[in-house]
């Protein structure tokens, strides 16, 4: 049973302890203080990603609550094959993408055959993407499709490898590489549309 009666203070536990160790301690003791550590580390990040993808504070609020509950109830299924953060973010991205699909009744959040005349011969520089100031970054992320946005967040915010992204989206690594290229191009196109006069 979940021990709610005598939780340790999260501050009693070293902040240097790794996520994987916290998960093990939680599973061994069912002490909610260990879950509080994970909550403190990840709830803000989950909320931010949900907000970026769902574009609504109340939906991001519900998403964070649902994702955290899902994580709590499935902690024993975390196998340790991936980083804990990757596991958490994969739950978050999949939750948000499913939510968008259901809301829009559109199964094509990620479209392989992206029918647009994007010149993807020339790859957009990473620095161009990451050095756009935060205010503009918010605007651009708000403009681009959810699929492109999530793939850029995975790459630049979560430092996920191509292999990790392909695992989350259940696609081949070459498909993911192409999708990143397209998302970067889309980002650049929106940037120039919005700020061409600067």
């Amino acid at each position: 049973m979940i021990n709610l009666l005598y939780p340790l203070l999260a501050s009693d536990i070293s902040s240097n302890i790794s996520d994987e160790e916290v998960v093990k301690l939680y599973l061994d003791t069912q002490n909610v203080a260990y879950f509080n550590i994970l909550y403190k580390r990840y709830s803000g990040k989950i909320f931010g990603k949900s907000l970026s993808l769902l574009k609504s504070e109340s939906e991001a609020h519900d998403a964070t609550q649902d994702v955290m509950m899902k994580i709590l109830l499935n902690l024993s299924k975390f196998s340790g094959k991936s980083r804990f953060s990757t596991w958490i973010y994969s739950i978050t991205y999949n939750y948000c993408i499913d939510f968008i699909r259901r809301k829009k009744k559109d199964p094509s959040v990620y479209v392989d055959d992206f029918i647009e005349n994007l010149d993807i011969e020339e790859e957009v520089n990473d620095a161009f993407i990451t050095e756009v100031n935060v205010k503009r970054l918010k605007v651009i992320l708000n403009e681009i499709p959810s699929g492109d946005k999530s793939i850029l967040l995975m790459k630049y915010q979560d430092d996920m490898s191509i292999r990790e992204i392909s695992g989350i989206l259940d696609k081949s690594e070459s498909a993911i590489k192409m999708q990143i290229k397209r998302a970067k191009k889309k980002f650049q196109t929106v940037y120039y549309d919005k700020y061409k006069d600067d």
Partner: peptide
């Protein structure tokens, strides 16, 4: 990558929505 404003955006969002997180924690 010298500067990554995706990370800065994440930090800003975490700071900005601190209060929301307290409400979510109570619900959980």
């Amino acid at each position: 990558i010298n500067m990554n404003n995706f990370k800065k955006l994440q930090e800003e969002q975490e700071e900005q929505y601190k209060d929301n997180l307290l409400g979510i924690k109570s619900s959980i």
